[in-house]
């Protein structure tokens, strides 16, 4: 069936079985492979994307339910040729990525968290950051550096602003 939604700012229509995992629609139909599959059952968070600004697991999202919604994937944060987002830069600076499998999901969950901080004016602490990424498993167990990276990005501003401004 035809499903129309906003993808990274552009109106998009895909033809997909209604209960297809939106993760597969992104990767296989649309060729957007930044969103990774880990467990496929909502445990690991590496397929995290934003729907109407809220972080969700793309593996648990039936394609039909993106109808009329606004979807953001990791591809929206930076252009391959352009600058990285502040969170991506911060994770580079703190060595917040090892094998890289969890990284796309960490960036999306972290981005949702940083936007929420900006909206509420709250100050980040280790506890709130840990809570924000509790649904994202890193099996290299590099959590401390990821938390440091999110903290660094929070201190610099929001992730929507690109690194050069």
């Amino acid at each position: 069936m035809k499903i129309t939604f906003e993808l990274n700012g552009a109106l998009t229509t895909v033809d997909s079985p209604p209960l297809a995992r939106f993760l597969d629609v992104l990767r296989d139909t649309l060729g957007l492979t930044a969103t990774k599959e880990g467990c496929g059952e909502g445990e690991c968070g590496t397929c995290s994307i934003l729907v109407d600004g809220e972080v969700v697991n793309a593996c648990l999202l039936p394609a039909i339910q993106v109808f009329g919604r606004s979807v953001e994937t990791l591809e929206s944060l930076s252009d391959p040729a352009g600058p990285l987002s502040k969170l991506q830069e911060s994770l580079l600076a703190t060595d917040g990525a090892q094998c890289g499998i969890c990284t796309p999901g960490m960036v999306m969950a972290g981005t949702a968290f940083l936007r929420q901080l900006k909206a509420t004016g709250a100050q980040p602490c280790d506890r709130s950051i840990r809570q924000a990424i509790a649904g994202n498993l890193c099996r290299c167990t590099g959590y401390s550096k990821i938390i440091e990276g999110i903290k660094m990005a929070a201190a610099q501003g929001t992730p929507q602003e690109s690194a050069h401004d």
Binding site: V55, V56, A109, A132, A134, G135, N136
Partner: peptide
């Protein structure tokens, strides 16, 4: 319940 990703859905 779950984590943020699950609580949002």
């Amino acid at each position: 319940i779950g984590a943020q990703q699950i609580q949002n859905r």
